[in-house]
Design a protein around this nucleic acid. Structure first.
Length: 484
DNA sequence: TTTTGAGTTGTTCGA
DNA sequence: GTCGAACAACTCAAA
């Protein structure tokens, strides 16, 4: 019989048992553990997860619950205001402490601080841990004490400063101290009507799926990363770990250790490894930017852009969302997103550039769409990346950098496999015209079975005119700024 | 304090 | 076809 009061481990964005500092610390106390997940209904200012994220969460919670049961434990599910749920569960189980992994969305951060303060007042000990980042936003400072605003110096400093902590094993057994749980099936996270088949085909949510994905990527594909990471036509050109990271089914420290070990053992090419880890560092950098600029989520980081003459055009936005712009690489990306809840990073840049520059629509419109449709939608990364592409973000791109969707398509979807997969209407168009079917002679389209405007849309804007319009708008914005 | 070098991801045009 | 220049100016980080 245990004399120690139970510890509640509140799982949130850390749905894993291995290398989970909050869980490991709870196990370390020797006390019985109550594993909890709360469907929070009352976080002020929080954005509800999109449909794709809800689907993932459902799968991931099922996986976590199964893992816990395998250890003799159980996942307690509750709905409501986190503080009320925690107080009630503590009363029910006699728990005197709550452990959790910190999260970094602005609303979640403030809510957690309030919960922590309130629990402390009622005599409940709260301990929070870093299980989602290599280095938390405040951990890395420039020489003058500020935060890094430019990626390259940030990345250099991080490489010099970061030391991965020792790996933490998953618990071997968990005692069966539980409170009453709700039924996950009642949470209605699964879409109705069920459009999730494409997601289920593409992904295995959960810790085991995450670890398998990492192992598969490090067992070969990573070595080509420096050369092929921009190729959406190749299935293994990227790790596809983003949604697993988003839900904390794997932590960046695990990735860091595994990559470094591979380099050490000469199984992984060092240069490729560094390029891959720098992408993990971009994830960290986004968190720094959001932490020090909470308004980054909805306002221009660079206020010059407050004067941008964005258009309001529901038809154009709808065509973009549906993958009906008439530019194959753009449409393929948006259809891939709709179908699988994910898009290759290179294609994210192309479609984002198209929305903000060719269509002159505000980046927030695209950011919102991504939030609703991506399985990896993350408040820091999504906002920082959209702003980066729009030009309003940290280390803004020069205003004249406007992606040409035709050139980008031929350059990165070299084989055409990407467009042919997601725009099968164009499957028989020869390579030469695949990325610009509107330039193909009548006869070629006819042979390929394409009728522009019927089987595949005509372009909704003409590239060079749209490009010029964007350049003029940016320039004018700048001049007004100077005059003001 | 001042200075200096540098900054993820591109396109177009003309030689 | 390839290649280099032009496209701007500004802020950041560190010496």
């Amino acid at each position: 019989m245990s004399v120690l009061p139970p510890v509640i481990v509140w799982f949130r964005e850390d749905l894993r048992l291995t290398d989970n500092p909050a869980l490991a610390a709870a196990v370390e106390t020797g006390a019985p553990i109550v594993c909890l997940y709360i469907r929070e209904t009352d976080i002020p200012g929080a954005r509800a997860p999109g449909g794709a994220s809800r689907w993932w969460l459902n799968q991931s919670l099922m996986a976590l619950a199964a893992s816990l049961e395998g250890l003799g434990g159980r996942l307690v599910l509750k709905t409501g205001d986190a503080l009320k749920v925690l107080n009630a569960l503590a009363a029910e189980t006699d728990a005197k402490s709550v452990f959790w992994t910190r999260r970094y969305g602005e609303a979640e951060k403030s809510a957690d601080a309030a919960v922590k303060a309130a629990l402390k007042e009622t005599g409940i000990n709260v301990q929070s841990f870093n299980g989602r980042l290599l280095m938390e936003p405040w951990a890395l400072k420039t020489g003058s004490g500020g935060y890094y605003r430019v990626f390259t110096p940030f990345w250099r400093a991080m490489q010099a400063a970061y030391v991965a902590p020792a790996a933490l094993p998953a618990p071997k057994r968990l005692g069966n101290i539980v409170g009453a749980s709700e039924d996950l099936a009642d949470w209605d996270l699964h879409p109705r009507p069920d459009w999730s088949a494409g997601l289920a085909d593409a992904w295995t949510p959960g810790e085991a799926g995450a670890l398998a994905r990492l192992a598969a990527f490090l067992d070969g594909p990573v070595n080509g990363y420096a050369e092929t990471r921009n190729r959406p036509d190749l299935d293994e050109s990227t790790s596809r770990l983003s949604p697993h990271l988003r839900f904390g089914e794997i932590g960046p420290a695990q990735i860091w250790r595994a990559v470094k070990a591979g380099v050490e053992a000469r199984r992984i090419d060092e240069r490729a490894a560094l390029v891959f880890l720098s992408e993990i560092a971009w994830r960290e950098f986004s968190h720094v930017l959001l932490h020090f600029n909470p308004e980054l989520a909805h306002k221009n980081y660079n206020s010059n852009f407050d004067r941008m003459p964005w258009l309001s055009n529901a038809a154009a936005l709808g065509a973009w969302q549906a993958g009906q712009t008439g530019y194959p690489v753009v449409d393929a990306g948006l259809r891939q997103l709709w179908h699988t809840g994910w898009m290759h990073n290179r294609v994210r840049m192309i479609v984002a550039s198209f929305l903000t520059k060719h269509l002159l629509l505000p980046w927030q419109a695209g950011e919102t769409w991504f939030w609703d449709t991506l399985v990896d939608a993350d408040p820091a990364i999504n906002a920082a990346s959209w702003q980066w592409t729009a030009g309003s973000g940290a280390d803004a791109a020069p205003y004249f950098r406007v992606f040409n969707p035709i050139t980008q398509g031929s350059k990165f979807d070299e084989t055409g496999a990407f467009v042919r997969r997601w725009c099968p209407q164009l499957a028989r168009v020869p390579d030469k015209f695949l990325h610009a079917p509107f330039e193909a002679p009548e006869g070629i389209l006819k042979t390929a079975g394409v009728v522009l405007g019927k089987t595949y849309p005509k372009p909704i804007v003409e590239h060079s005119a749209a490009r010029q319009r964007a350049l003029d708008a940016y320039k004018q914005t700048k001049e007004e700024q100077g005059a003001a």
